[in-house]
Nucleic acid binder design. Structure first.
Lengths: 338, 338
DNA sequence: CTGTTAGCGCGTTCAC
DNA sequence: GTGAACGCGCTAACAG
């Protein structure tokens, strides 16, 4: 494998000069430049990025650690969509993405220490923020550029992009209430996820506003999987009397819930109304198409990237905390009370 | 940031000794070892992976370049599922995944050169193999460990895992023919994808076997997106007479096709039968659930990882080329001819 | 404009 | 058992 030395020798110049023409870091006479370029071409020379990173302290790589709680990416959750947009956007800044998996909840910090402190990446994006999220404190203390998708309860100032989950759920509830539903179930996220409480708050607030009383039997906390949604829905349908509508905290769970309802012979949008949260791609492609609260996930990925890149470049963020408003997308999974 | 030097100084030993205790590469007296370990803990020292990679010529990272043809990962194609399994499996070998995006068809090779020749990764997985795939020749010539998901027509011996697309489509066709369909459409993949021809072959073969003649009007080549499937289906439904069943080369396209058919007022499984290919997660969750040809994608990801890791370790592959048999999964998107 | 040189942080001989 | 010294390939000062 050719190194910069070989190129220098072939071109009859010093390695410094070669470096300069590669990085355009100093003016080089055209003639010499051409010789260098020619040598580079001849060897099909490619600079060793590892050596380059060691020297320059930059890797051109962003870390994304997949949370253990997500059971990796087996299911079409928002995470796939987010990753898609991050991949797209990071490309624009010539960053690659280093995907690591945390094996378990306890070892949650291991990949961060290895990847981040080991200097394999210039910064990282964290998702799925939790209450008392250890990662945030760690990254702040180590002074590593990072951006979070989601707020947290740690009393720390850190850059994030989040969606107003309370407002989102409130919109969905408003819609269901306007359809005449009064007995509305709620399938929530695991309480360790910080966003779970916002969504629940939106549910309670909408209820309260209409003078409806909060019935704990109608509120279930499920795992963030299709199976989690499926099971939660089954439970909800066994409540007496069962809800006529259900607000669900993620589309993924909503898909499972739809399946559960259909198994019970219910026609979704007629016998039972369902509102999801996320608006993942598939929400528009299932049958019936799912009415849901759209997180502008593509935009979120774009913002996360842009902010992180700014941070990496040492620029100051114009907006350090961004909260986006979600939007109700009406499709066909809801109907009026009968 | 603490380096190995700091640790050595603190422990009152040389950096060589520290290196030995970290890598367990020589016997160190227990007492000294403890001192080193203590110093490591005190500094929360983490070896610099970049320096380590430069020296050892290993990065512990696998490359996956997202093909430009897939329009990244915006849609729930097999790629998401494959990535999920690769992430899971690579974790078992302590490999991270470097995700890069190729910006355009012409610059297809750029990310490979940069990432692979730049020594950022120990090996790579390529997907979406094409006819005359340049990447294969390149990686072979550079002697880089790699494994492909998919065969190619290049007359080269390279390690791959693939699915027998011909047999898969044949199974689907067999099923449709047994339901009494004789006018069966086919939505194929872009012909640049090498697997497109196998699938078409399965279609033609099944037809021929039953003495049915091949009607070019019923065969459409679409982009591998939902929109591609949607458009292809619309075209197919405009053929006179339209097909009563359609064999589609990917689930993603099938989802789009289902939408197209439903828009025309057709009941899928009654008015028109649809068979997909892949069995992505959503195939079981759409309505009606999609009858499809299952690629054992999780297993494929696992095999790809295992083979690549073996290659990286310099071991010989027991099986250098693996072709898996797909399986017909009968759900509800097909019905008998009426 | 071009060459020389000093590290970046670590692993690895090879002495001791 | 332990330490000194070299070099992985490159960038960035600085000198000329």
């Amino acid at each position: 494998m050719a190194t910069i030395k070989d190129v220098a020798k072939r071109a009859g110049v010093s390695i410094g000069t070669v470096s300069h023409v590669i990085n355009n870091t100093a003016a080089v006479r055209n003639e010499t430049k051409d010789r260098v370029l020619k040598a580079i071409k001849e060897f099909d020379y490619q600079p060793n990025s590892v050596a380059r990173s060691l020297r320059s302290r930059r890797t051109g790589t962003i870390s994304l650690v997949l949370p253990a709680i997500e059971r990796s990416m087996d299911e079409p959750s928002y995470l796939s969509d987010l990753l898609a947009s991050i991949v797209d956007e990071s490309k624009r800044y010539n960053f690659d993405i280093l995907l690591s998996a945390s094996s378990s909840e306890e070892e949650e910090m291991t990949p961060y220490k290895r990847v981040v402190k080991g200097k394999m990446v210039d910064g990282c994006i964290i998702t799925c923020t939790k209450r008392n999220d250890k990662r945030i404190a760690y990254l702040l203390s180590e002074n590593i550029p990072f951006v979070a998708f989601g707020r947290s309860n740690v009393g720390l100032d850190f850059p994030y992009v989040d969606v107003d989950g309370e407002a989102g759920v409130y919109q969905g509830m408003h819609y269901l209430l306007d359809l005449g539903h009064t007995r509305i179930g709620f399938i929530g996220l695991p309480s360790e996820l910080f966003c779970s409480e916002h969504r629940l708050k939106g549910y309670r607030f909408a209820l309260k506003e209409r003078g409806l009383k909060f019935d704990p039997a109608l509120v279930i906390e499920g795992k963030t999987t299709q199976t989690g949604g499926y099971r939660s829905m089954k439970k909800l349908l066994n409540v007496d009397p069962p809800p006529t509508a259900v607000m669900i905290s993620s589309d993924l769970m909503a898909f499972g819930a739809m399946k559960a309802a259909q198994e019970e012979g219910l026609i979704i949008g007629r016998d039972i109304s369902i509102v999801g949260f996320d608006d993942v791609q598939m929400a528009n492609n299932c049958h019936p198409p799912l009415t849901t609260i759209r997180q502008p996930i593509y935009k979120i990925g774009v913002l996360l990237c842009q902010m992180l890149v700014q941070l990496i470049r040492g620029e100051k963020l114009s907006e350090r905390q961004i909260i986006l408003l979600p939007e109700l997308i009406v499709r066909e999974s809801c109907g009026p009370i009968r």
